[in-house]
Design a protein around this nucleic acid. Structure first.
Length: 422
RNA sequence: GCAGGUGUCGCCAAGCGGUUAAGGCCCCGGUUUGUGGUACCGGUAUCCGGGGGUUCGAAUCCCCUCAUCUGCCCCA
C-alpha cells in the first residue's frame, strides 16, 4: 500500500520557489515591528480548548464550528489555535508581563488552524502575523498600531488597500445598543434570512453586516453603534478618527463592520484589499481593542489593542520579486578540487555551485558541467581543468559574453569577490 | 454544513466503447569527455485519482469513494 504524498486537506507545502517570498516578508516584518518597539513572542500552536471557548467566544463561528479539537492521552481537551490573541494574553499573564511598565508590545507569527472548506485565500492551516499592545487605554496606541500595519503593507509593496474603522462600544453602552437592535428588529424577524434570525439570538450586532440584500433592506433605518456610544466611548472614537487622519491615513468609516470575535471593545478595524488574486476574500488583516480580555482571563484590568494579518493573503498580493543573486559555478576534471574551491568561495560570501552528476570519482565532461552551470544561470564559471590544476591557476569564464581570464588560484577568491560582491 | 466544476507521465494536454494511451515542456543520454545557451537523434505512463459494476472488450458508460478547485456562510 503506497502512502499518499498529498498533504492533509486544506494544507499545502511551501516549496523552494515560494519560500523566498516568505523569508522576505518575515524579515521585513521583523525589522519593521522591532523598530516600533514590538518584541517577538512565540506561544504554543495548541492550547486548552477552554482558552479559546472563553477568549474568542462561544457564539463565534470560530468556536462553534471551526476548531480543531482533540483529546490527548490524558484526556485533556486541546485545540489547535484558531487565532493568536488568546494565547498571547494567556502567556502575558502567565509570565507576569502585566507587571512590566506598560505598554507591553508583542508581535507573533505562525500557523493557525480553522476547520473550513478550503477556497482561494482560505486554507485550514494558514499563517498570521500579529501584534498586541497591552496597558494603554488612550486612542493614541490604537493609532500607532494602525499606522504600523499600514506602513508595513507599503513596505511590502502593497498599496491598494483601505482601512475600515468602527467602534463597537463597551460594557457601558453595547448591551443597551444590543437591546435596541432587538427591539427594532423583533417585529421584522420573519423578513430576515435564517442566519440573521440565529444572529438575533446569539449576537445581534452581527446581523448588520449580513450580505443578503433583503436583510440589508431591513437594516437601512437601524441606527448604527457609533450613534449610541456612551460618553467615554464617544470621546475615544472621535479622538481616534482625528488622530488617524492626522497620521495621513484616510479611514473608511464602516458602521456595519462587526468583527467575528467576541472580545473586541470600542475600536475595530479591518484592512481590505479588492484584488482578484484574493478570490472572494477581501480582508487581509483586522483587529481592534479588547479591553476586557485580560481581566476575563483572571488578570488585572488591562486595556489592549492588536491586529493580525493573513500572511498567505499578503503573499498573494506581493508584486513580482526581484531575481535572486546568480551563483558562480565551479567546473573541474577533479571533483574534490571543485568542492574545495567552492567551499573557499562560499567562505568569502560568494554563492557557489558545482556539479554532482558524475559517477563515482569521475567528473562529467566539461560540456555537461557547463550546461549545468548555464541551467543554474551562473554568472561566472571557474574552470579547474588538468592544465589549470597543474599550474595552480584557474580560468574564469564570464557567462554573459563568454570571455575568459586566467588567474592564479590564490587570487581567485579575492578576484571574484571584487567582481561579484563589489 | 450546502451548491457547482475538475481528476490521463513532474507540468500542460489529446483521446469520448476496440489506439502499442498522441503531442508539447521539463528531465536524462547522444551528435560534442577542455567549454554553455541553438539544432538534430534517442529514452522516460503495462496504465488513465481509488474501488466496484455493465460489456466479448472501458481512460472512455453506470454507481460509490477520495482529492482538488470555485462559490455560500464567516473570516486572515
Amino acid at each position: 500500500m503506497e502512502i499518499s504524498t498529498q498533504p492533509p486537506r486544506g494544507t499545502s507545502d511551501i516549496l523552494p520557489g515560494q519560500s523566498d517570498d516568505w523569508q522576505r516578508l518575515e524579515s521585513l516584518a521583523k525589522t519593521h515591528l522591532q523598530r516600533a518597539g514590538y518584541k517577538e513572542i512565540r506561544t504554543p500552536t495548541f492550547e486548552h480548548t477552554e482558552l479559546f471557548k472563553r477568549g474568542v467566544g462561544e457564539t463565534t463561528d470560530i468556536v462553534s464550528k471551526e476548531m480543531y479539537t482533540f483529546s490527548d492521552k490524558s484526556d485533556r481537551s486541546l485545540t489547535l489555535r484558531p487565532e493568536g490573541t488568546a494565547g498571547c494574553v494567556r502567556a502575558f499573564l502567565n509570565a507576569g508581563l502585566h507587571r512590566q511598565s506598560p505598554p507591553v508590545k508583542l508581535w507573533y507569527q505562525g500557523p493557525m488552524y480553522r476547520y473550513e472548506r478550503p477556497q482561494t485565500g482560505r486554507t485550514r492551516q494558514f499563517h498570521q502575523l500579529g501584534i498586541e499592545a497591552f496597558g494603554s487605554q488612550g486612542p493614541l496606541i490604537d493609532v500607532e498600531v494602525i499606522v504600523v500595519a499600514s506602513d508595513f503593507l507599503k513596505a511590502l509593496g502593497i498599496e491598494d488597500f483601505e482601512v475600515q474603522l468602527n467602534s463597537l462600544g463597551d460594557a457601558a453602552c453595547r448591551p443597551a445598543y444590543r437591546e435596541l437592535l432587538r427591539e427594532k428588529l423583533r417585529a421584522r424577524l420573519d423578513k430576515l434570512c435564517a442566519d440573521c434570525r440565529d444572529r438575533f439570538e446569539r449576537n445581534p450586532l452581527r446581523m448588520l453586516d449580513c450580505k443578503v440584500p433583503t436583510c440589508q433592506e431591513q437594516y437601512k433605518d437601524i441606527p448604527s453603534a457609533i450613534d449610541h456610544l456612551c460618553d467615554d466611548c464617544k470621546t475615544h472614537w472621535l479622538k481616534l478618527v482625528e488622530l488617524v487622519q492626522a497620521q495621513g491615513i484616510k479611514p473608511v468609516i464602516n458602521p456595519r463592520m462587526v468583527r467575528g470575535l467576541d472580545y473586541y471593545t470600542r475600536t475595530a478595524f479591518e484592512f481590505v484589499a479588492k484584488d482578484s488574486r484574493l478570490g472572494t476574500q477581501s480582508s487581509i488583516g483586522g483587529g481592534g481593542r479588547y479591553d476586557k480580555l485580560v481581566e476575563m482571563f483572571g488578570g488585572p484590568p488591562t486595556p489592549a489593542v492588536g491586529w493580525a494579518f493573513g500572511v498567505d493573503r499578503l503573499l498573494m498580493l506581493l508584486p513580482d520579486k526581484s531575481l535572486s543573486a546568480l551563483p558562480v559555478f565551479v567546473v573541474s576534471s577533479n571533483p574534490q578540487a571543485a568542492l574545495a574551491t567552492a567551499t573557499e568561495l562560499r567562505r568569502v560570501g560568494i554563492q557557489t555551485e558545482l556539479d554532482f552528476a558524475g559517477q563515482g570519482q569521475a567528473a562529467r565532461n566539461f560540456s555537461k558541467q557547463i550546461q549545468q552551470a548555464n541551467k543554474l544561470q551562473a554568472s561566472y564559471v571557474v574552470i579547474l581543468g588538468e592544465d589549470e590544476l597543474a599550474k595552480g591557476e584557474a580560468t574564469i569564464k564570464d557567462m554573459k559574453d563568454g570571455s575568459q581570464k586566467v588567474v592564479s588560484q590564490s587570487e581567485l577568491a579575492s578576484y571574484l569577490g571584487k567582481v561579484i560582491l563589489e
